[in-house]
């Protein structure tokens, strides 16, 4: 199964604090371990939310909100996509991660929706629509 592993933001990450050399080294080693175990698919760190924007939807209206955003604990500071056998394995790997922040922090694991999760009826139809959209892209 594929999971998204999200490092939650803290005051430090939101302040744009640069990780210590020790943390960078530990993280590098950890990433290497994930690669050697065939677990890591992709991943990246994110800039603080002050560099981000949000688009709010309300019916036909769209409004732009500039960062930073207030609810720090709900923000994401970095992510990985992993391929693991089950959630147990994902949890075991996350436990081995060096604490990504100077203070207390949290990492959240969420399984990625599989095409089969849509149900047999919906999946082809859903894909078909995406495909039609995509075929129009080169015309732009």
């Amino acid at each position: 199964m594929r999971v998204m592993v999200m490092v939650k933001a803290t005051k430090d990450s939101e302040a744009g604090a640069i990780p210590s050399a020790e943390l960078l080294e530990a993280m590098g080693k950890y990433n290497e371990e994930l690669i050697s175990a065939g677990v890591l698919l992709t991943g990246d760190g994110l800039k603080p939310s002050s560099a981000g924007k949000r688009v709010a939807f309300d019916g036909p209206n769209r409004s732009i909100i500039d960062g930073p955003f207030a609810e720090t604990r709900e923000l994401v500071a970095g992510f990985w996509l992993w391929e693991v056998k089950d959630m147990d394995e994902a949890v075991a790997w996350v436990k081995r991660c060096p604490n990504p922040m100077p203070g207390p922090s949290e990492i959240e694991i969420r399984p990625v929706v599989d095409a089969t999760d849509f149900g047999e009826e919906l999946a082809p139809e859903f894909g078909e629509r995406l495909n039609r959209l995509r075929e129009r892209l080169p015309e732009r």
Binding site: L41, T42, L81, A115, P124, G127, E128, L130, N131, L133, R134
Partner: peptide, 8 residues
Amino acid sequence: NRARWDQL
């Protein structure tokens, strides 16, 4: 249906 190809 190429939209179902896994881009990752």
